[in-house]
């Protein structure tokens, strides 16, 4: 039986998940109200247009609704898990859109988002990077580290694609990823100290 909305609002995310697993719409609605904004913002940041972001967010939340039992509290918070579901859906969306798109002229700006990963160019990478508003922890990193993390996490590029796009050895790309993440992590640890 569905719990009342007011009762669900008093529960922690981790307490809501078993109810979502039992198909309780009220619990799910509270979960959406808590994290839907962050989820949609992330989807929009990755796919770059509102209609697609809406589609991705809806698909992600539906998959959470249908598979709430997959959440494992030992591996992180509900919010982190949920946002990782959104991120994966958004990257899948980008790749599927790229795969379906016809081959277009490289000077066609509108075609840039539609190209398969292997055809995406440095031009695109730079456009994405400059268009991105780097905020928070990422914004504090030196540009070379922020750029590779940005391309990997928000662009869905693999390290070898990033190496090709930026014209860098793969080892350099992986090293910058590592340095950047360690720096963010170090700042988080200092903040807690």
């Amino acid at each position: 039986m569905a719990v009342r909305r007011e009762k669900a609002e008093r529960l922690a995310d981790e307490e809501l998940m078993p109810l979502v697993g039992r198909k309780d719409p009220e619990a799910f609605e509270v979960l959406y109200d808590r994290h839907g904004g962050a989820a949609y913002s992330l989807a929009y940041r990755i796919v770059g247009d509102r209609a697609a972001a809406e589609e991705v967010t809806q698909e992600a939340f539906i998959s959470v609704w249908r598979s709430g039992a997959r959440f494992d509290a030992a591996r992180g918070s509900v919010r982190s898990w949920l946002l990782s579901v959104v991120r994966n859906r958004a990257i899948d969306f980008l790749r599927s859109r790229a795969a379906k798109a016809p081959k277009l002229d490289f000077d066609d700006e509108s075609a840039l988002e539609q190209r398969p990963a292997e055809e995406r160019t440095e031009e695109e990478a730079l456009r994405r990077e400059t268009a991105a508003e780097l905020r928070g922890a990422l914004g504090k990193l030196p540009d070379p580290q922020a750029k590779v993390i940005e391309l990997a996490y928000f662009g869905g590029f693999s390290h070898s694609e990033i190496a090709r796009i930026l014209g860098l050895p793969m080892g350099t790309v992986k090293g910058r990823m590592r340095l950047g993440l360690e720096k963010i992590r170090g700042e988080m640890a200092e903040g807690l100290a």
């Binding site: 940041r45 905020r135 928070g136 922890a137 993390i149 360690e182 988080m188």
Partner: peptide, 13 residues
Amino acid sequence: PAVQTLPESVERT
């Protein structure tokens, strides 16, 4: 946790 902060750094829409 460093990776988990990345989605939080996105501008809210």
